[in-house]
Lab assay of single mutants.
Amino acid sequence: KELVLALYDYQEKSPREVTMKKGDILTLLNSTNKDWWKVEVADRQGFVPAAYVKKL
Rank of each mutant, 00 (worst) to 15 (best):
L7M: 09
V18G: 02
K1S: 09
K38F: 15
L29G: 01
L56I: 14
R16P: 05
A51M: 12
V4M: 05
W37A: 04
K55H: 09
W37Q: 00
L5E: 11
Y52T: 07
W37L: 04
N33A: 09
N30S: 13
T32E: 14
V41T: 15
T32G: 10
A50E: 03
V39T: 01
K1G: 10
D24H: 06
W36N: 02
R44Y: 05
D9S: 09
A51G: 12
G46M: 06
K34L: 11
E17M: 06
V4H: 03
D24E: 11
L3G: 03
D9A: 07
V53E: 01
K54Y: 11
K54C: 15
Q11L: 13
K21E: 06
V39S: 00
N30T: 08
D35A: 12
D43I: 07
T19S: 15
K34A: 13
E12C: 12
E40T: 08
W36Q: 03
Y10L: 02
E40P: 00
I25V: 11
A42R: 14
E2N: 13
N33Y: 09
A51E: 10
L56G: 03
R44V: 07
D24P: 00
E2G: 10
N30G: 07
A50L: 02
L29K: 05
G46Q: 01
N33F: 09
Q11W: 13
Q45F: 08
K1V: 14
K38W: 14
K55G: 05
L5F: 09
L29T: 05
Y52M: 11
L7S: 03
K1N: 10
K54G: 08
G23F: 05
A51H: 13
E2L: 12
V4F: 05
E17L: 06
N30E: 15
A6D: 00
K1Y: 14
T19W: 05
R44G: 06
G46Y: 05
A42Y: 14
W37G: 00
L29D: 02
D43T: 10
E17S: 06
A42S: 13
F47M: 09
D9Y: 04
L3K: 11
Q11P: 06
P15A: 13
K34E: 10
P49A: 03
K55E: 06
V4Y: 08
T32M: 11
Y10I: 01
L7F: 04
T19G: 09
R16M: 13
P15N: 11
K34V: 12
F47E: 04
E17G: 12
P49L: 05
G46S: 02
I25E: 03
T27V: 15
N33S: 11
N33D: 15
R44C: 05
A42L: 14
L3E: 07
V39R: 00
S14Y: 07
P49R: 04
V18T: 06
W36P: 01
K54N: 06
K54Q: 14
L3F: 15
I25F: 06
L29N: 03
R44E: 05
T27L: 14
K1R: 14
G23N: 07
G46A: 03
L7Y: 04
A6E: 01
V18I: 14
E17Q: 11
R44M: 06
D24S: 08
V39M: 02
S14W: 07
I25D: 00
E12H: 09
K22V: 07
Y8A: 11
V41R: 15
L26I: 08
D9K: 04
K34P: 14
T27W: 15
L5V: 15
Q11N: 13
K54A: 13
K1I: 12
K55M: 11
A6I: 03
L26T: 01
A51I: 11
I25P: 01
Y8Q: 14
S31F: 08
L56C: 14
K13E: 08
K21S: 09
L28S: 01
L26K: 01
S14F: 07
D24V: 06
L5H: 04
M20Q: 02
V48M: 02
L5Y: 11
T32A: 13
Y8F: 13
E17W: 04
D9V: 03
A50T: 06
T19N: 07
V18A: 06
V4L: 10
M20F: 10
L3I: 08
D24G: 04
K22L: 05
V53N: 00
P15C: 10
A50N: 03
Y52S: 10
Y10G: 00
Y8D: 07
D43G: 15
E2R: 12
V53M: 07
A50S: 14
K13D: 06
K1W: 13
Y10F: 08
T27K: 12
K21L: 08
G23L: 03
A50P: 04
D9Q: 04
F47Y: 15
L28Y: 02
R44D: 03
L56V: 11
M20H: 01
E12V: 06
E12P: 14
Q11K: 13
W36T: 02
V41G: 14
Q45Y: 08
R16H: 13
K54D: 07
K54P: 01
E12T: 08
G46T: 02
P15Y: 09
Y8P: 01
L5M: 14
D24I: 05
L5D: 01
G23Y: 05
V39P: 00
K1Q: 11
G23D: 06
S31C: 12
T32L: 10
L3W: 14
K13T: 12
K38N: 07
W36M: 06
N30P: 03
K38A: 08
D43K: 09
F47A: 03
F47S: 03
K13F: 05
D43E: 13
D24Q: 14
D43M: 10
R16Y: 13
D9T: 06
K54R: 14
A50H: 04
Y52C: 11
V4D: 00
T32V: 10
D24T: 08
D9R: 04
L7V: 07
T27Y: 12
L3M: 12
D43N: 14
R16F: 13
E40Q: 15
K22E: 07
V41L: 15
K34W: 08
L29Y: 04
P15I: 10
T19P: 07
I25Y: 06
R16N: 13
W37T: 03
L5K: 08
Q45A: 13
W36K: 02
V53S: 01
V39E: 00
L29A: 03
K55D: 04
A51C: 14
A42G: 15
N33E: 12
T32C: 13
K34Q: 12
K34N: 12
K55Y: 10
E2D: 12
R16L: 14
W37E: 01
E17D: 06
D35L: 14
D24N: 07
Y8I: 09
N30D: 15
A42F: 15
L56P: 03
V18N: 03
K1C: 14
Y8V: 11
Q45E: 11
E17F: 07
A6M: 02
Y10P: 01
A51V: 10
S31R: 08
Y52D: 03
D9F: 04
Q45V: 14
Y52H: 06
Y10Q: 00
V18L: 15
K38V: 14
N30Y: 07
L26M: 13
M20E: 00
T27Q: 11
W36D: 00
Q11D: 14
K55Q: 08
K22R: 11
S31N: 09
Q45D: 09
K1M: 12
V18Y: 04
S14Q: 08
D9M: 04
T19I: 02
P49K: 04
L3D: 04
N33Q: 10
T27G: 10
K21M: 10
G23T: 02
L7P: 00
N33R: 10
E40C: 12
D43A: 10
V39K: 00
K22P: 03
R16T: 12
W37D: 01
S14R: 09
A51T: 13
R16E: 13
E40Y: 07
D9E: 06
Q11G: 08
D9H: 06
K21W: 11
K21Q: 10
L7G: 02
D35I: 15
G46L: 05
K21D: 04
Y52Q: 05
S31E: 15
K38L: 15
R44F: 05
